[in-house]
Simulated assay, not measured.
Amino acid sequence: MHDFNAIARAYIAAWNATDVASRAALIEKAFTANVSYRDPIMQGDGHAGIDALIAGVQGQFPGFRFSLKGDADGFADTIRFSWALGPEGVPSVIEGTDVCEIENGRLKSVTGFLDKVPAR
């Protein structure tokens, strides 16, 4: 049985890590080596791909933080959770829901859905 909330918290911690070495350790903890990530605007594979995605989001939205929206849920080896992204202390700018496959307690695949995005 998986601790879905712990898995989701590890994911969020990796996305919030700005120190390169700390982020690498958090990515290794949260994701399998062969992880695949897909959402409507970006994709990446493996730890290096996840690191590049995180660095890109942090570069585009400096000072923004990810947070979980509610509790994660799931069954068997599938988890889903919702998240918010924005400056601390103000309403989120971007929100989404991720559906992921788990292998040995880490995320093997992530499919992201964007629930709220800023108007262009």
Rank of each mutant, 00 (worst) to 15 (best):
residue 3 D to H: 10
residue 4 F to C: 07
residue 4 F to T: 07
residue 4 F to E: 07
residue 4 F to G: 08
residue 5 N to C: 08
residue 5 N to S: 08
residue 5 N to K: 10
residue 6 A to L: 10
residue 6 A to I: 06
residue 6 A to F: 07
residue 6 A to K: 14
residue 6 A to M: 09
residue 8 A to Q: 05
residue 8 A to C: 09
residue 8 A to W: 02
residue 9 R to H: 12
residue 9 R to T: 11
residue 9 R to K: 14
residue 9 R to N: 12
residue 10 A to Y: 02
residue 11 Y to R: 00
residue 11 Y to W: 11
residue 12 I to N: 06
residue 12 I to L: 12
residue 13 A to T: 11
residue 13 A to F: 06
residue 13 A to V: 07
residue 14 A to T: 01
residue 14 A to I: 04
residue 14 A to S: 10
residue 14 A to R: 00
residue 15 W to Q: 00
residue 15 W to Y: 08
residue 15 W to I: 00
residue 15 W to S: 00
residue 16 N to A: 08
residue 16 N to Q: 07
residue 16 N to S: 09
residue 17 A to E: 13
residue 17 A to D: 11
residue 17 A to T: 08
residue 17 A to H: 09
residue 17 A to C: 09
residue 18 T to I: 12
residue 18 T to M: 09
residue 18 T to H: 13
residue 19 D to S: 05
residue 20 V to F: 05
residue 20 V to D: 11
residue 20 V to Y: 03
residue 20 V to H: 07
residue 21 A to S: 11
residue 21 A to G: 05
residue 22 S to Q: 15
residue 23 R to E: 06
residue 23 R to M: 11
residue 23 R to G: 04
residue 24 A to P: 02
residue 24 A to K: 05
residue 24 A to F: 03
residue 24 A to Y: 00
residue 25 A to Q: 12
residue 25 A to C: 03
residue 25 A to V: 07
residue 25 A to D: 13
residue 25 A to K: 08
residue 26 L to S: 05
residue 26 L to K: 14
residue 27 I to L: 10
residue 27 I to R: 03
residue 27 I to A: 04
residue 27 I to N: 04
residue 28 E to C: 01
residue 28 E to N: 06
residue 29 K to V: 02
residue 30 A to N: 02
residue 30 A to W: 01
residue 30 A to S: 10
residue 30 A to I: 04
residue 31 F to Q: 01
residue 31 F to Y: 15
residue 32 T to D: 02
residue 32 T to V: 09
residue 32 T to Q: 03
residue 32 T to K: 00
residue 34 N to V: 08
residue 34 N to I: 05
residue 35 V to G: 00
residue 36 S to C: 11
residue 36 S to K: 13
residue 37 Y to H: 14
residue 37 Y to D: 02
residue 37 Y to P: 00
residue 37 Y to Q: 03
residue 38 R to E: 15
residue 39 D to N: 14
residue 39 D to C: 07
residue 40 P to Y: 13
residue 40 P to E: 11
residue 41 I to Q: 14
residue 42 M to K: 14
residue 42 M to D: 15
residue 43 Q to T: 14
residue 43 Q to C: 06
residue 44 G to E: 14
residue 44 G to Y: 13
residue 44 G to S: 12
residue 44 G to I: 13
residue 44 G to K: 11
residue 44 G to P: 10
residue 44 G to R: 13
